[in-house]
């Protein structure tokens, strides 16, 4: 195991996160994933949005940028296109990525540009004091849904899939025995195309306190109990997924196949890992073909 500390900036420690916050776990796994890939710090750029999670760039000894709320992916698109040799990682909160930045999120997925997005999904706006986010579960209490949320949430991984991301995975900060998060992040980093790793993580300070789950440990167990690895899905559901995605059966029919006990569970695992044309490469090919064409045309005229 690498010395995680050697990737941290002493100037910014101690960090701003609360005791028991899930963000640190994600940062540690990111560091280990980069380390195992053997990338040098100089080759990596980490670009954050605004939020507790958005503060990630400060503490990491990479090329870092802390941007504006929701726009990290758009900044990162500029960095990547101008300097394709950099490995560009984006750190966003669930609100940052799917609320204010939802538009940039779907378009980065659609473009399939080679960025790795880590969504720190704690189910609310942590930085501003725990208000409703587009990911807050139904019924959950937040600072703006004191009696329970009535506003249906997004499923960020499914949103990315629908929008065209070519690598989509979801995991949690719980039970990292088999180092699933690190594995997912490593695969995402190595993937050529847009990759998303959504991590369900705990915010004991707001989500925990307001929903009677104050203890971070308790919250982690909650994450365990609320999620279900894709591999453990019954065969029937796998088929359902495939069928829906191939659009060969109507949703009506498919709904009838859903086993009852799966209701309310959040799936974790790798939802998609496909090789599709990547934007920076497609753009370079376009540049080359135009330049060749112009050269030939010039030669023809002369």
């Amino acid at each position: 195991m690498p010395r995680v500390e050697s990737y941290l900036r002493g100037e910014e420690l101690p960090h701003v996160w609360c005791a028991g916050c899930g963000n640190g776990t994600i940062v540690r796994e990111l560091i280990q994933a980069v380390d195992q890939l053997g990338w040098s710090k100089d080759e990596v750029a980490v670009i954050g949005g605004i939020g507790c999670s958005g503060r990630t760039p400060f503490i990491l000894d990479f090329n870092t940028m802390h941007t504006t709320h929701g726009r990290a992916l758009a900044f990162a698109t500029g960095v990547k296109l101008a300097r394709p040799e950099l490995h560009v990682v984006v750190a966003s909160g669930d609100g940052d990525a799917s609320g204010i930045g939802g538009n940039h999120f779907i378009h980065a997925c659609r473009r399939n540009i080679d960025l790795t997005l880590l969504v720190f999904n704690n189910g609310l706006y942590g930085q501003t004091g725990g208000q409703l986010a587009p990911t807050t579960p139904m019924g959950a209490r937040t600072a703006t849904t004191r009696t329970g949320n009535i506003d249906p949430p997004f499923d960020i991984a499914q949103l990315a899939l629908a929008a065209g991301a070519s690598f989509v995975a979801r995991t949690t900060t719980f039970d990292n025995q088999d180092q699933e998060m690190k594995r997912f992040i490593q695969l995402a980093l190595a993937h050529r195309g847009f990759s998303l790793v959504e991590v369900l993580c705990q915010c004991p300070t707001y989500f925990g306190r307001m929903n009677g789950l104050g203890d971070p440990h308790e919250m982690l167990f909650h994450l365990r109990d609320e999620t279900l690895p894709l591999e453990e899905l019954p065969e029937v559901l796998h088929r359902w997924e495939e069928q829906v995605r191939a659009q060969t059966v109507s949703l009506e029919q498919a709904k009838g196949m859903l086993p009852e006990e799966l209701a309310g569970k959040i799936l974790t695992g790798i939802f998609c890992n496909e090789d599709r044309p990547e934007y920076t490469q497609s753009y370079q090919e376009l540049q080359q073909s135009l330049q060749t064409h112009d050269k030939q045309e010039k030669a023809g005229v002369a």
Binding site: M65, T68, A74, F75, T77, A82, L86
Partner: peptide, 9 residues
Amino acid sequence: SAIIGAAWA
């Protein structure tokens, strides 16, 4: 946002 990112690149 993209032009600022690119400027820093």
